[in-house]
Design a protein around this nucleic acid. Structure first.
Lengths: 111, 111
DNA sequence: CTTGAATATACCTTGACAGGAATATTCCAA
DNA sequence: TTGGAATATTCCTGTCAAGGTATATTCAAG
């Protein structure tokens, strides 16, 4: 979960993932479209690969990279656990303020 | 989008967000539950706040932090644009290999 | 077998960021 | 009004990661 997020946190890598959404690409093509030097493209792809976000298939001289759905599905599952917050307007602030107040009173109790 | 991801990429901050999923909390409580020193908790909350992931309401001495749904919804929307990839098994690798092959042939054309 | 294209790797440098410790600020209670 | 609790901020330091450049590797074509 964490490697996924930190992989996506880098702007160029996020951009690569968005590029690959429309289909597989070669390292050179990725570097071109993002205005990166080839070594940086390779390095970012390595990080994405280690996070499982991307997989590679060699074809002669080139390496074709494509998206792997699994990590994105994990991210989706994680997000799902928050969905009730905005669907049910789940706030709990009032509830929490009451609890705070109670604990204050307890603190004041003198037996 | 980017500030959201880099905010969540830090393990302690991700943990804070998960804590707040169950309701608002005080800085001190957050620090306690995560085994953080108070200053670090405050700093992480600042980053989360600047990313819009969290909002604060002062109550006397304390600051109550709670989750803000919007950034998580944005993340969800972004993920949605990838959903077809794993729903439709959208791969396009074969298609891409054919295109590669075609461009090779073009390269060989001698007029 | 040699050359050039495509890619990966290594090394260096620099900047950003997280943690630690100290300090400032604000507020309530006695 | 003074003290202590809760929190934010500042400064310092070390670490890590990204970019740049050079180089190694692999492959196809001639």
């Amino acid at each position: 979960m964490n490697s996924i997020l930190s992989a996506l946190a880098e702007p160029n890598r996020l951009h690569i993932v968005e590029l690959l959404r429309d289909g597989p690409l070669t390292v050179g093509e990725i570097a071109d479209r993002l205005g990166l030097h080839q070594p940086q493209a390779s390095k970012h792809l390595r990080v994405l690969s280690e996070a499982g976000l991307v997989e590679m298939q060699p074809v002669a001289n080139r390496r074709i990279y494509r998206l792997r759905p699994q990590p994105l599905m994990e991210l989706d599952a994680w997000l799902a656990s928050f969905r009730r917050i905005w669907e049910e307007r789940f706030d709990r602030l009032d509830e929490y303020l009451l609890e705070l107040q109670k604990s204050e009173q307890k603190h004041d109790d003198k037996p």
